[in-house]
Measured scan of single mutants.
Amino acid sequence: MPSETPQAEVGPTGCPHRSGPHSAKGSLEKGSPEDKEAKEPLWIRPDAPSRCTWQLGRPASESPHHHTAPAKSPKILPDILKKIGDTPMVRINKIGKKFGLKCELLAKCEFFNAGGSVKDRISLRMIEDAERDGTLKPGDTIIEPTSGNTGIGLALAAAVRGYRCIIVMPEKMSSEKVDVLRALGAEIVRTPTNARFDSPESHVGVAWRLKNEIPNSHILDQYRNASNPLAHYDTTADEILQQCDGKLDMLVASVGTGGTITGIARKLKEKCPGCRIIGVDPEGSILAEPEELNQTEQTTYEVEGIGYDFIPTVLDRTVVDKWFKSNDEEAFTFARMLIAQEGLLCGGSAGSTVAVAVKAAQELQEGQRCVVILPDSVRNYMTKFLSDRWMLQKGFLKEEDLTEKKPWWWHLRVQELGLSAPLTVLPTITCGHTIEILREKGFDQAPVVDEAGVILGMVTLGNMLSSLLAGKVQPSDQVGKVIYKQFKQIRLTDTLGRLSHILEMDHFALVV
Rank of each mutant, 00 (worst) to 15 (best):
L184Q: 06
I122G: 00
K36V: 06
P2Y: 08
K98Y: 04
E110C: 01
L28K: 06
P2N: 13
R182N: 02
R91D: 08
P64Q: 06
D245C: 14
S50G: 06
L42R: 13
T260C: 11
K75E: 05
A130F: 06
V160Y: 07
G57Q: 08
A60G: 04
H218E: 03
P200S: 08
T53W: 04
R196Y: 11
S73G: 14
E201P: 10
I143D: 04
W208S: 04
C15S: 08
K247H: 12
N212P: 03
G11C: 07
I80N: 07
R266A: 14
G115N: 07
I143K: 01
E187N: 07
D140C: 02
G116F: 07
G153D: 04
P70C: 11
A155Q: 04
K271S: 15
A48K: 10
N93Y: 05
K36A: 09
R91I: 07
F112P: 05
V168T: 05
M250I: 09
T260F: 01
V180A: 10
H218Q: 08
E187F: 02
L124Q: 11
S3P: 10
A226G: 07
K269P: 01
V160G: 08
I92Q: 03
E29I: 13
A237M: 04
L106R: 08
V90W: 03
E37V: 15
P33G: 11
K177D: 00
I261H: 05
T236Q: 01
R51I: 07
D221S: 00
R224K: 13
L248C: 13
G263C: 00
L230W: 04
T87M: 06
G100V: 08
G256C: 00
G85Q: 01
L156G: 00
S175N: 11
F111L: 08
L154V: 06
D47W: 02
T87V: 06
I261F: 05
T146D: 04
C244Q: 05
S217V: 00
W208V: 09
D238A: 10
T68S: 13
L248W: 01
P273S: 11
C275Y: 00
T135R: 10
P273L: 14
L251R: 01
Q222R: 01
S202D: 07
G162S: 07
C52I: 03
T68H: 10
S50T: 08
S147D: 04
H67G: 05
N194P: 08
T191Y: 01
V252F: 09
